[in-house]
Nucleic acid binder design. Structure first.
Lengths: 278, 278
DNA sequence: GGCTAAATAGAATAAACGTTCCATCGTTCG
DNA sequence: CGAACGATGGAACGTTTATTCTATTTAGCC
């Protein structure tokens, strides 16, 4: 970063929420007290701006309304109204009339296929939000580190977890990462393929399948690290896994969309592959 | 429905967006011209209310502002402000600070696992929205009808579609619907299991896998109905499928989240099972 | 420690907006 | 055909909310 601090000088207003965040970051630390309070509060409640008044934002930040106005001007806007428009536009673009469409699909009547689609879409969306909200970054990093060290990654997932495991097998193959899918074909386990230096990635949801638990125990006994992808609470698994990644998948009826699980699994796979290459 | 038309009489205001829609439906057809215009416009742009002014809604509906005010009162609210509060509350509940959280995850830095999660979550969410937006209900109903008539449903899906096919096999099994997963284990096809009265459900994305195309052609030649779940444009498939369901899955990098495909596939399965039971 | 400049808070102002009211128009029913 | 009622549009009103201004305080610098 060059000397001098030109970033509080007037400039044109951010044209997107991303640009807004960038400017907020650039300003951080070189603002007077009250404006810094505004910046802090706004940064952690970006989504509220679209629906709040100046007075509400000011109250949230613990400053008088006039401080919020100065903050808006420092950010490059003529005032609060112009800043708010940026967030309102973003908000209405993000949900053009998605909600309406969903409601229309649902309104078709119970049992109609389109109603089911709406319900599953809704369940998937909620699952995604839950994943983003509850993700434990430390645990994820730990899982990536463990798997990146492994020579071969063994994948376990049966019944409803099998699609996830098989997708991981496909993705690891494409990424050039050695992985074995324990699919139980022909009634055979692949236990003998577990070698020192390998790791096990198990996907299982309560009630846990016996095959998965057995395989995990076996791997543990052989001294291999075990990473488990499951749903909370994972209390039963504490004894047989080194790293436990939990993900809350919202069900609709008896079935789950797998959206969040797959998103997490994919991230894990891509991160592991990236870590290996470097 | 009893005689008389009490539904335009004063009553308490709807407490939820669902209740609002219900009341809108109940009122439909028994409103004076201008109020009906308001109702029509509001029904198709439910999401805009939260962020619009009276003047904007009025302009959108092609009526003077005072007509919108009367509409709000007919709906049971004291005025536009009270009605708007309902939608604003719903909007802020739906995105508590999901957007902020996503941005924070992304801000972790390129290559960080948490950044990947944010990207996959975002891709999944967009895919879901695209599905809800673009779903062709007629085609879906047709697919359900076709599969519900089949004695046995044959499932085809290889490579990255295999997780979807295998999940469908699991779900059909749980639902008590006869289904065969053509998994290509041992290099065998299951062609001989295709019998008259059966149907084929194939999942494949461009570039289409040869196995799937071959199986679909074979089924077609045998006179079996073929339903395909694929991505647009599906022009190549027109010749070998009776029903083509398209779904746009947003990719992140080289991989797709499968969220939308799975949601659609699940809906299909549950609808087919429901249709059979009756 | 006093001088200068920036920062702040609160009140005053102005704009935007929701709401109400009333005169006019159209429709229906006697 | 005419009276009565409901619907309509537009203007006036009052409230809410953004914005500006200025006196006062605070912080920085010689």
């Amino acid at each position: 970063m060059p000397k001098g601090e030109p970033s509080t000088e007037p400039r044109e207003a951010p044209q997107s929420v991303e640009a807004f965040r960038d400017r907020l970051l650039a300003l951080n630390g070189q603002l007077p007290r009250r404006l810094q309070q505004c910046a802090d509060h706004v940064a952690t409640h970006l989504d509220r701006i679209a629906l709040s008044t100046v007075a509400q934002v000011a109250h949230g930040a613990g400053v008088p309304p006039s401080a919020v106005m100065r903050f808006c001007q420092i950010m490059g806007f003529t005032g609060f109204a112009e800043m708010q428009r940026l967030f309102r536009d973003a908000l209405s673009r993000s949900a053009p009339d998605y909600a309406t469409r969903l409601a229309n699909l649902k309104a078709g009547g119970v049992g109609q296929p389109s109603t089911l689609v709406a319900e599953f879409v809704e369940a998937g969306r909620q699952s995604m939000e839950a994943l983003a909200r509850d993700l434990n970054e430390d645990t994820l990093n730990q899982a990536v580190a463990t798997l990146a060290r492994a020579r071969t990654i063994h994948l376990a997932g049966f019944r409803r977890s099998f699609p996830v495991a098989s997708y991981l097998a496909y993705v690891f193959d494409k990424l050039g990462v050695a992985a074995v899918l324990h699919d139980g074909v022909a009634g055979l386990g692949h236990r003998s393929s577990l070698r020192p230096g390998d790791a096990l990635l198990a996907i299982t949801f309560a009630p846990y399948s016996e095959e998965t638990l057995a395989l995990a125990s076996h791997a543990r006994d052989s001294g291999l690290p075990v990473v488990v992808l499951t749903d909370p609470p994972a209390s039963q698994l504490a004894g047989i896994a080194d790293t436990i990644l939990t993900v809350t998948e919202i069900d609709f009826g008896a079935f789950r969309s797998l959206s969040a699980v797959i998103a997490l699994a994919l991230s894990l796979a891509v991160a592991v592959a990236a870590r290996r290459e470097t």
